[in-house]
Design a protein around this nucleic acid. Structure first.
Length: 418
RNA sequence: CGGGAUGUAGCAUAAUGGUAGUGUACGCGGUUUGGGACCGUGUGGCCCGGGUUCGAUUCCCGGCUUCCCGACCA
């Protein structure tokens, strides 16, 4: 992508109404656009990054048997009444609206109900189980107060997978696999070290659910971490009884701020019973399907990654999620030979399949280009300049470490196409 | 949802009861050219409604917006 073609531009100053670091940087770099409080649009660079995150999650969900679907945003009120999750007393953050004939509808807040009802169309025998549909879908939550930039929005992207199993045992074995898949996801995103499986309140069918909490001062949750055992407790279940039940020692628990980046639940038959999702077992007996749900928020992860890795100059993207792998910065491009030299490298990199953003602006000065490059945070910067052309080398600078190498085109390709 | 603030150009800000200045961004001309350079010049602005007043961007009331604290948060 040539930067002169990109419609976004960077800003020196963040808007005064953003306090969260993630939103300030994402807006300054032109990754997102704030539409309203808690509602952010994704611009080309931001969307590429979001898609990278989505793709990693997708691969790991597929690897454990997930089948991707896309449920709807508009929700049937009648369905949610069946599980008693429509009334404002039960769920107070619905966005509700109505059809022209007065029929109530809501904007998807989560998808247990519609997914369960839909699966009832296809599940009637033990032979139909287990199944693991999932999706990436916008969720709408009418939060009383949006905050923390893209990390707590009223509209946000969520991956939600549901397991439909025959028995608790079958569910549990999938739950374990999903848990492992989540660990892989956080590792691939580069935040595995800072992410702790955290016991939190469970709900109807289990005492606990497990959250994936990523340590950050920008987080909204307070957790108590046992760093040696790599286990944590959410403040909401932090008490003597729970600590001893989990075999932890209060002395070794350290209070930390963290971002809830994922959450997995045992649902049991909480949804299958009221919605009539049953199957016939080998003996012809009708039984409710045993369920679990597995959520992870790609848009929140995007903000989390910014929070964790940014430095004073801007964002620092891990290789796996960076919008581009290489930021080619052309200098002295008013000189025709230098421009040809930089253009040629760009074309060669693109043809070699390297994802590259090319700062081909002629009028911008070096300082401005470097500052923009630091802000955008692409992992590898290649500087193509007149000086370099005369020496026959390109300067390769690592965003994270600042390491500088001067490489010939051959060395450079050995590096980036291996 | 309770409390407190807030609203001036694309962005950041200043002043003012007599319709607004600066920086940045943007246009044009010129000098520059490896860490957001400089000179000249130009375009562009007072959230909405009501009230007070000869006159409101300014004061008052209401609304809305955004932010902060708290509550809430499968």
């Amino acid at each position: 992508m040539r930067q002169t073609e990109l419609f976004t531009k960077t800003r020196k100053e963040a808007p005064s109404d953003e306090v969260a670091k993630n939103a300030q940087l994402l807006i300054r770099a032109g990754f997102v656009h704030k539409e309203m409080a808690g509602v952010y649009a994704y611009l080309p660079l931001g969307l590429r990054t979001l898609h990278k995150i989505v793709q990693i999650i997708r691969e790991e969900m597929n690897a454990i048997g997930g089948q991707e679907v896309a449920m709807t945003t508009l929700q049937d009120a009648e369905l949610w009444k069946q599980t008693d999750r429509w009334s404002d007393e039960k769920v107070d953050n619905w966005f509700k609206t109505s059809l022209q004939n007065g029929t109530e509808v809501g904007l998807s807040i989560t998808h247990e109900e519609p997914m369960t009802r839909m699966m009832a169309q296809y599940i009637s025998s033990y032979r139909d189980l287990p199944k693991y549909p999932y999706q990436f879908q916008n969720k709408f939550r009418n939060e009383a107060r949006a905050k923390s930039g893209v990390m707590r929005g009223r509209e946000f992207l969520m991956k939600d997978l549901y397991d439909f199993s025959r028995t608790e045992e079958e569910h549990n074995s999938f739950y374990t696999a999903a848990r492992d898949a989540y660990i892989k996801i956080f590792d691939r995103l580069g935040i595995g070290e800072k992410t702790y499986i955290t016991f939190a309140s469970g709900g109807t069918f289990s005492e606990f659910s497990e959250e994936f909490q990523t340590l950050s001062e920008a987080g909204e949750d307070t957790i108590y971490v046992d760093e040696k055992k790599r286990i944590a407790l959410n403040k909401e279940v932090y008490n003597e009884g729970v600590i001893s039940k989990l075999g932890l020692d209060k002395e070794s628990l350290v209070e930390k701020r963290a971002i809830e980046s994922g959450n997995i639940f045992h649902l049991g038959t909480k949804f299958s019973e009221p919605l009539g999702l049953t199957y016939s077992d080998e003996n012809g007996e009708r039984k409710p399907v045993y369920m679990g749900s597995y959520g992870i928020g790609p848009s929140r992860l995007l903000g989390t990654i910014v929070e964790l890795f940014a430095d004073e100059k801007g964002m620092v993207w891990p290789e796996a999620v960076a919008p581009y792998r290489v930021h080619l910065v052309g200098l002295n491009l008013d000189d025709e030979e230098t421009r040809d030299w930089a253009d040629a490298l760009y074309n060669n990199l693109v043809n070699a399949g390297v994802e590259v953003l090319y700062d081909d602006r002629v009028e911008a000065r070096a300082g401005e280009k470097f500052a923009d490059s630091d802000l955008i945070g692409i992992p590898h910067r290649i500087v193509a300049s007149k000086k370099g052309k005369d020496a026959g080398t390109y300067e390769v600078v690592e965003r994270a470490t600042g390491e500088i190498r001067n490489l010939t085109e051959e060395e450079l390709f050995a590096d980036f196409t291996s």
